[in-house]
Design a protein around this nucleic acid. Structure first.
Length: 725
DNA sequence: GAGCACTGC
């Protein structure tokens, strides 16, 4: 769901009495015609029958099938559906705009605007539901958060997990929990798993495999009624595209006690066609050694040959390359004769300001073709209108956690086939299009089928704590769609133990439960808990810093030399000698103290106003949560400037959460980590860059062109030894 | 002189 759709969706009007002439109902009837033309409309009956007879439905369908909006509406009046329907989304904008759309289609007001509302959404900072809400769109993280209050998700008759193919960590955790619930919950729970790719087999297999049974807990782990099924009625008709798990696919699973259970009739699957215009694919004949040159060439080739209208979308790796290419394309474009349309080059990446990110959505001036140079943000997160030509460099930056080194690497890698196909699809959303792949067909065939799921690429500390806090104690036996390697799990368990979030037995500690409730990484959560201790007494200050560290960087991207100098002088006013943590605190305090014009203050200091707004949101949320958890002793008044020991206490708190991220200065001038003795450089974005200090602590350890510590402060070895000791 | 892709609670 793209931004324009999100913006054009309108708020339902308030009205006491709903009749056929009300605007809501008129709108509903108008939309009904369009709904009937969606590919999924014809599958309505099959989907209902599938869930009448089965507990799990795997629904695959490409973009444009209408599954995200229609499936909950198909199920709402089913006899088994007495509770709510949850439908999860990976992104907030999608959850909000889908809820708006479905409310309109149903002719009901949205969310909390009316007690009669049937459709709502719930995302961080914005819960727009009412007690009457039946269909609830929410982010994956929100549903996981709800599981802290009720791990059985008792208010829901059905949970629909959308966009499963994106394979976020949260989706993988949800699928594991839902699989457990589906067999363990006393009342039945229907689960619909929706995915764009046709990779249905692994999902079916996942839900058909028996949970691992341990310690004689067989009765609770066995699916109730597994034996009563024969699977003869549901796959008989060839009129149905979905297939039930029948005899031929019936599985026999033996657990360690030798008990054999036959599984059938629990899982159905269904495929819906998407709605896309055809896209012609062009490959290179030979591999290109200079991708920038090849991209430049291809942009002008398309521009000069292909008729208007039709904008170009170019997929590249990162902002640096995008800005470089922008300059070159603009230079060349000046030499175009007036026979050709003009070119408007627009960069698109997440770190851009809100206004700059909006520019690709605005119509181009007359006789002008837009060339959008984008990162992966345009692959899933935003949909740029008007694009008929996609240029795909075949590369992307990918984050990967290195378990042994304990750092994240962010390196350029070849994309997968499904990513290449997703990029291709961006050319065929409004009209037939072209996709120019700047690699050979052989290179395409050699690509991985799918991206590596995030759960195989990230630090598992947060995921493990999420599991433990929701009752999945035996994390090694958790049902993963793709189980992470054992050493990755062990590393996470050790980290949580070091933080004190787990007891020696591996069970979650009281402190761990507090950390798990906070919308933060376990390390940052631990810092919060430390700061609340009476002898530390610096929670408000720490919340300000933690809020900064948990959002995008507050420092604005500077690209020109002149702006860079302005930025340096502005930032020096805020910079603190001890490093980035207290510099961030100074920035937040100055921003919060600015009551007249915060936007201007941010612009003057070359600080991102958008980032600062999220900092304030997070700060508010954390403060409220800490009050609720009785962690907050002081109220709103800031500590006096004369509080000499404050800075030291703040840094000691961070050290408690990040004791693994400490390095000491070596005689050769480099920093070496205490754990692992690896070289780490201070990131160029730090106020401490180039400084030589006894020891440093940093929040992130990331490998790009070399190993950098980001968000760095000076610490004393003495503090570190006290914590380790 | 060098520099982090994208989500989310």
């Amino acid at each position: 769901m793209g931004l324009p759709q999100a913006m054009e969706a309108t708020q339902g009007t308030k009205r006491k009495r709903v009749d056929e002439k009300s605007p809501l109902q008129q709108k509903r009837l108008k939309l009904l015609e369009g709904r009937k033309r969606l590919p999924i409309w014809l599958k309505q009956k099959e989907i209902r029958h599938a869930l009448r007879d089965h507990n799990v439905l795997v629904l695959s369908g490409e973009t444009g099938s209408g599954k995200s909006t229609q499936v909950p509406q198909f199920l709402l009046d089913q006899p088994w559906c007495s509770g709510k329907i949850a439908i999860t989304q990976p992104r907030r904008v999608a959850a909000i705009s889908l809820a708006r759309r479905v409310a309109e289609e149903m002719g009901t007001p949205l969310g909390s605007s009316s007690p009669s509302s049937k459709v709502g959404y719930s995302v961080r900072f914005d819960d727009n539901t009412s007690p009457s809400t039946r269909i609830k769109y929410l982010t994956e993280g929100m549903l996981l958060q709800e599981m802290l209050r009720d791990a059985t998700l008792g208010q829901y008759s059905c949970v629909i997990v959308d966009e499963v193919h994106e394979r976020s960590v949260n989706v993988d955790l949800l699928l594991g929990f839902l699989k457990q619930l589906e067999t363990r919950r006393s009342s039945s729970l229907k689960v619909v798993v929706m995915s764009a790719t046709a990779d249905v087999d692994s999902l079916r297999r996942f839900f058909s495999e028996m949970p691992i049974v341990t310690q004689g807990a067989i009765s609770t782990a066995l699916p109730t009624g597994a034996a009563e099924t024969n699977g003869d009625e549901c796959r008989s008709g060839s009129e149905a595209a979905w297939t039930g798990f029948g005899d031929e696919e019936e599985r026999e699973t033996a657990n360690s006690s030798g008990v054999v259970a036959s599984i059938s009739k629990r899982i159905a699957s269904c495929h819906v066609e998407g709605r896309q215009y055809p896209v012609v694919i062009r490959y290179l004949d030979n591999h290109s050694d200079d991708i920038m040159e090849t991209t430049l060439h291809r942009i002008f080739q398309i521009h000069c040959k292909e008729p208007m209208p039709g904008d170009l979308l170019v997929f590249m790796t990162g902002s640096d390359r995008i800005l470089d290419l922008q300059k070159i394309v603009e230079e060349y474009a000046q030499n175009l004769t007036s026979d050709f349309p003009k070119l408007l080059v627009l960069p698109l990446f997440a770190a851009l300001s809100q206004a700059a990110q909006q520019r690709p959505f605005q119509p181009a001036p007359p006789n002008t073709r837009k060339v959008i140079l984008s990162t992966n943000i345009a692959e899933t997160s935003v949909t740029v209108p008007g694009v008929r030509f996609v240029v795909d460099t075949g590369m992307a930056k990918v984050k990967q956690f290195r378990i042994r080194l304990g750092l994240d690497s962010l390196l350029v890698k070849q994309i997968s086939k499904s990513s290449a196909d997703q990029r291709k699809g961006r050319a065929g959303r409004e009209a037939p299009g072209q996709c120019h792949r700047l690699y050979t067909e052989a290179a395409y065939r050699s690509m991985e089928e799918h991206d590596k799921p995030e759960i195989l690429r990230c630090d598992l500390s947060a995921a493990v704590l999420t599991m433990k806090a929701r009752g999945a104690d035996d994390v090694l036996a958790f049902p993963f769609l793709t189980p992470p390697p054992r050493d990755a799990m062990e590393k996470a368990l050790l980290n949580l133990l070091r933080l004190g979030a787990l007891q020696e037995t591996g069970q979650i500690s009281a402190l761990g439960r507090k950390v798990a409730r906070l919308p933060l990484t376990p390390s940052l959560g631990r810092v919060i808990i430390e700061a609340a201790r009476p002898e530390m007494n610096c929670l408000l200050e720490v919340i300000d810093i933690v809020a900064c560290l948990s959002v995008e960087s507050i420092w604005l991207n500077v690209d020109t030399e002149e702006v860079r100098e302005r930025a340096q002088t502005a930032r020096q006013q805020l910079a603190k000698r001890s490093g980035d943590h207290l510099t961030l605190l100074a920035a937040v305090q100055a921003y919060a103290a600015e009551h007249s014009d915060r936007r201007r203050w941010a612009d003057d200091h070359l600080i991102s106003h958008r980032a600062m707004q999220s900092v304030m949101d997070v700060r508010k949320q954390l403060t409220a949560q800490c009050k609720q958890a009785k962690l907050l002793l002081r109220d709103t008044e800031a500590a006096s400037a004369s509080d000499e020991g404050l800075q030291e206490r703040v840094l000691r708190c961070f050290l408690r959460g990040f004791s693994g991220n400490v390095a000491r200065l070596c005689p050769d001038g480099s920093y070496k980590t205490f754990i692992g003795n690896q070289t780490v450089a201070i990131h160029p974005s730090s106020v401490l860059r180039g400084r030589k200090l006894e020891a440093i602590m940093y929040n992130e350890f990331v490998y790009t062109s070399k190993a950098y510590g980001r968000n760095v402060s000076a610490v004393q070895l003495r503090w570190y030894e006290e914590i380790i000791g």
